[in-house]
Each structure stands twice: as structure tokens, then as C-alpha cells.
């Protein structure tokens, strides 16, 4: 069985299968987070005036700012990892992917301290609708980070070198497609940060 357009682009659509697949997946992710954002707006409008702002001030803006920068850096290093593969430089690819992995660990660590700080002050999802939506949105986002991390570790382990030696183009495409997912996770955070922490 040989499925066409895994590596080369189909002429009339100009796409490879996995690229189209991941974009459709991301479209569904947009709707998933969209549902939650819509819940946020709905609840905010139903809440007492000033209630959301008051609870939002409990969150740590410095931690979230650092996390934003960390996530943006991981996004850049992800795209650099792909660019290195395009330039046929596998060792550089490993370095950049390593940075991405490191950044996502940093993100998770900071998030851990944020969550435990809240719990230490007896703030739970059940405290208020703001905290409920905060924990749900960031929790789902963290799950996306963890999922991405698992895939990145897979592409970082020695097996990746074999894949690269055997089918360099396909491997590059995989990294590109994964990169799209990773940038999307970054994108979600770009909106989560002001919506939850600053408004």
C-alpha cells in the first residue's frame, strides 16, 4: 500500500496530506477553545460588576509574563528547528528542539508554582466562576503543552536520527506539521494571557 502525497505535494491542491490534516485539526481546536472563550464571556457578563477584575487580581502577572516570553521563545526555537532541517543541519535541529523542550518544561514548572500558590491560598476552581474558567482554560492549555512535549521527546530521542537518515524530507514535514500544532498552542496562550490576567 502506497498512499500518495505523503512527501510530494498534490498538483491541484498544492498540499501534502499531513499539512491539510493538521490544519483541519487546528480548525477544530479553534472551535474547542472558542467554546471555552464563549463560556468566559458569557460568565463575565453574568457576573456582578467588578467581580471578574477582583478575582483576576489574585493571579500573578509577573509569572504569566515570564511564561508568555518562555512560550514565545519555544515557538521561535521550534520554527528554527524546522529551518535547520531545511538547511540539512541535523545537529542544529537537535539543539533548537532541545531549547523548545526546555522552554516547555520551564513553562510547566512556572505553571505548577502558580497553581500551588493558588491552592495554598485556598483558591480552587470552585471558589468563583472566574477561577473556574481560569483553571479550566489554563488546565486544557497545559494538557496541550504536555501532549506536545510527549511528541517532541519522541522526535528528540535517537530514533529521530534514524528517521532523518531514512526519509529526510518526510521527517522535515513531520517537524513542520508538529510545529504548526506548537505555534497554535502558543497562539492560544497569546489570547489567554491578556484575557485572564490583564483584563
Amino acid at each position: 500500500m502506497n498512499i500518495p502525497y505523503v512527501v510530494e505535494e498534490r498538483e491541484d491542491t498544492g498540499l501534502i496530506n499531513s499539512k491539510l490534516g493538521i490544519w483541519i485539526f487546528l480548525a477544530s481546536e479553534v472551535m474547542l477553545f472558542g467554546g471555552l472563550f464563549s463560556a468566559y464571556i458569557f460568565l463575565r457578563m453574568a457576573a456582578l460588576p467588578g467581580d471578574f477584575e477582583r478575582w483576576a487580581s489574585e493571579l500573578s502577572v509577573p509569572m504569566a509574563t515570564v511564561n508568555t516570553v518562555v512560550l514565545i521563545s519555544s515557538s521561535v526555537s521550534m520554527v528554527m528547528a524546522w529551518a535547520s532541517l531545511k538547511m540539512k543541519d541535523f545537529s542544529k535541529y537537535k539543539m533548537y528542539l532541545g531549547i523548545t523542550i526546555f522552554c516547555s518544561f520551564v513553562f510547566l514548572t512556572i505553571k505548577y508554582f502558580e497553581y500551588s500558590g493558588k491552592f495554598a491560598h485556598d483558591i480552587y476552581p470552585s471558589s468563583n466562576t472566574f477561577m473556574a474558567i481560569y483553571f479550566t482554560l489554563t488546565g486544557l492549555h497545559v494538557l496541550h503543552i504536555i501532549g506536545g512535549l510527549v511528541v517532541m521527546l519522541y522526535f528528540y530521542f535517537p530514533i529521530s536520527h534514524k528517521m532523518w537518515d531514512k526519509q529526510p524530507e518526510q521527517f522535515t514535514n513531520r517537524i513542520e506539521v508538529f510545529g504548526l500544532y506548537w505555534h497554535f498552542v502558543d497562539l492560544v496562550w497569546i489570547f489567554l494571557f491578556p484575557v485572564l490576567y490583564l483584563l
Binding site: M78, V79, G179, L180, H183, D186, L187, I190, F191, V195
Partner: peptide
């Protein structure tokens, strides 16, 4: 946020 998002979408993606 939208400007940042468009940068990521346009260039990284």
C-alpha cells in the same frame, strides 16, 4: 493580542 497572533500565524505558521 490579535497583532501578536497574526505575526505567529503569518510567519511561524
Amino acid at each position: 493580542a490579535s497583532v501578536k497572533a497574526s505575526l505567529v500565524l503569518g510567519y511561524f505558521m
